[in-house]
Design a protein around this nucleic acid. Sequence first.
DNA 1: TTTCTGAAAACTGTTGACAGTTTAATGCCG
DNA 2: CGGCATTAAACTGTCAACAGTTTTCAGAAA
Lengths: 230, 230
Amino acid sequence: MDVADDALELRRTSTLSTLVAQRLEALILGGRLPPGERLNEVALARELGVSRGPIREAARLLSNHGLVEFIANKGAFVRQIDRGEMLEIYDLRAVLTGHACELAAMRATPAETQALSDLLERMDAATATNDAAGYYGLNLDFHALLMETAKSTRLRSYTEGLNKEAHLYRQVSLQTLPDMEQSNRDHAAIVAAIRAGEAQNARELGEAHVRAGKARFEAAVADALFKDRS
Amino acid sequence: MDVADDALELRRTSTLSTLVAQRLEALILGGRLPPGERLNEVALARELGVSRGPIREAARLLSNHGLVEFIANKGAFVRQIDRGEMLEIYDLRAVLTGHACELAAMRATPAETQALSDLLERMDAATATNDAAGYYGLNLDFHALLMETAKSTRLRSYTEGLNKEAHLYRQVSLQTLPDMEQSNRDHAAIVAAIRAGEAQNARELGEAHVRAGKARFEAAVADALFKDRS
DNA sequence: TTTCTGAAAACTGTTGACAGTTTAATGCCG
DNA sequence: CGGCATTAAACTGTCAACAGTTTTCAGAAA
């Protein structure tokens, strides 16, 4: 999608409500509106310089993205995600990532496989220099490109939603950092399968990749629990 | 969830916006608001006896369910689903149904497997008497119970959303009726795998079951196309 | 001091009105 | 008669005010 399309798309969809929704989403994911917090309509309206109408519409927009929960006569609250829901999210992400890899293997254009390979190389470089922050960003890019390559709008929006929800887990400290080396070995295997057009194989590799993340998460939680009790 | 819980839940969530959303959803899925139609706010407000605010909020609610699409300064439109999107929906439904069966195999209580078996029998009875309408309803119940048994709220809501979206396909005539006998053989195999706790097997069976539906759909589309041209 | 009661403050849910945009229609010109 | 500019109608986007509920807090009773 080029710039002109972007501009058109913006003009086609942008209204105060959607802009406010983006602001609110940023506030929530950025932690300034922590899980459990109520979205005070009048305060937010004053702060953002709009009336309550757009605030309410924006909150309703976010509600089905799973970021916000409505309680009648009490208002909109930032959702709280507990450990069980986090596991649920990992499971779904695993299944959907697997499906994305499968589709990518079937549909990837040469340019796309090349772009994936390029990202792989840059991630290797980040691993070599132990650049965790850089790796983190590239990792996001990689998974985004994977979804792009799968060419399934719903798959992408579901995955994006799950990723956002994961940010609502109370102890962000438990959002584990991947073992960069192992993680990128996974990526390399996935890209190889995609390049070879081995759909089933790509699917299994993608699913296992996320499952590994889930395992790390569970270990981190168990570890934190242990520390609490000691 | 018992009746008291339902009432509480209702009181907790129900507000004009949500009630209107349910009404609108019914109008859309019932075909009275066909795909592509604009949701005229003033007309709907008058018809439902509320002001435009709740209508707008309800539309925003439905927009995230994928039933409605907003275009700035033009309003809310009932989404249109084309053949490609329909295939995308089938794919996702297949993957998610497989996952649901997998989870069900791991988590089903004896009561739940029994309930699944009971539905199976009633579907057999419907098949025997060639009661397509009855089978249709029981089939919905079966898949709903499957999701219940999987005990994953997101899995359920995603699947429900996909099912609703599928209703937006322009030619509802192409929504194929399953071959009742074959379909129920699939169901029986799935329940057997769940009862046996064979998660991986249940997953594959569930996925294949939906894939079969996708194949029927593709055949029906090809057939319709052929008839058009002849 | 604690607990209950009741009123006030704060806030959400809803409504009707105003502003700006889009769409349809009317009339003009070729 | 057909195409085009202009104008009016219809409609959406936004706002400010009203109604009803929830929460808070002060004061009285135990």
